[in-house]
């Protein structure tokens, strides 16, 4: 994830480069460091450096890193000729390299030659069965072909070995959610919360899934996780605020039938409703009547 300060710096640099202010190489380095996906810009500015022999020779050994970066960006933009050119140049420099093998596989993927790409990857995996990038490429390939169950299978296989890779867990969680396999998604989100307990996004997503699952216990847990999201974001997350309101209503409906009056003596929901009102007043005054009407319907606002 990219921090706000870094993103501001990136945008500033991008603006500068776009307007011909120089600093293209610094921009490309930053893109690489932050691992952001701005393929079009990378392609444009990277090529402008690569096509200028003077600038290129100034980079020294970094020239090859740039080749790789541009190749990946070109694959992303479907400029397959450019990618091909970069990869051939790299191949001439480093024959036998696994990293170039990966690039070739990606090029095959971009052309839609799934079978050949698969073959290329399995060949690479034979040499080194622990190459994380290739395992991930396989998952991505299965996903690109629409073979979601295949992707899940590959991901599970990957996670069996690299089980502390939280990005993979997140991917798996999102796939499960997209397939409405919420129980499995719950497990993945728990795993994410375990590995990074202070990231509010995971708490929020976990609460969402729990809320979707329904049932009194899950709803109560969901409300708690919405509350923790509110705590971690300082009340700025609108989704969490709405979540608290909806959970309270749902819990009320479920426990209405029972005589057991375990009404939790908390005014979290009314506070959340007030916070929502305040946010809407500041950010979107035109939508405020809609909000108040809805909250009144939910009997959260008097």
């Amino acid at each position: 994830m990219v921090g706000a300060a870094e993103e501001a710096q990136l945008n500033r640099l991008e603006n500068q480069v776009d307007n011909g202010g120089g600093g293209a190489w610094e921009y490309l380095c930053l893109v690489r460091k932050l691992k952001v996906r701005r393929s079009e810009k990378v392609l444009k500015h990277g090529l402008s450096i690569l096509n200028n022999p003077n600038k290129r020779s100034k980079l020294g050994g970094d020239e090859w890193t740039l080749h790789e970066q541009v190749a990946i960006a070109a694959i992303d933009c479907q400029c397959l000729d450019v990618a091909k050119g970069c990869i051939t140049a790299l191949q001439a420099k480093f024959p036998e390299s696994k990293r170039i093998g990966r690039l070739e596989g990606m090029l095959l993927e971009a052309k839609g030659l799934w079978g050949e790409a698969e073959k290329a990857y399995s060949r690479l995996l034979e040499e080194d069965s622990l190459d994380q990038v290739i395992h991930k490429r396989r998952v991505a390939m299965a996903k690109a072909q629409g073979n979601i169950s295949g992707a899940i299978e590959w991901l599970n296989k990957y996670l069996e070995i690299f089980m502390s890779d939280h990005d993979a867990w997140r991917e798996l969680a999102e796939i499960y959610v997209s397939l409405q396999m919420y129980k499995q998604a719950v497990f993945c989100y728990e795993e994410l919360i375990l590995s990074q307990p202070m990231v509010p996004l995971y708490h929020l997503a976990y609460a969402d899934v729990l809320y979707t699952l329904g049932g009194l216990e899950n709803l109560q847990a969901a409300k708690k996780y919405y509350a923790s999201t509110i705590d971690l974001t300082g009340g700025k997350n609108t989704r969490a605020l709405f979540g608290v309101c909806l959970c309270t209503v749902a819990i009320g409906q479920l426990s209405k039938g029972r005589s057991k009056e375990d009404k939790e003596s908390s005014d979290l929901q009314s506070l959340a409703a007030m916070a929502l009102e305040k946010t809407y007043k500041q950010k979107a005054p035109s939508k405020l009547p809609l909000l108040t009407a809805n909250l009144r319907n939910l009997k959260l606002l008097s």
Binding site: A227, I230, D231, G235, V244, L268, A275
Partner: peptide, 8 residues
């Protein structure tokens, strides 16, 4: 939950 309340 309590912390969220105070935050709100």
């Amino acid at each position: 939950e309590q912390r969220a309340e105070s935050v709100l």
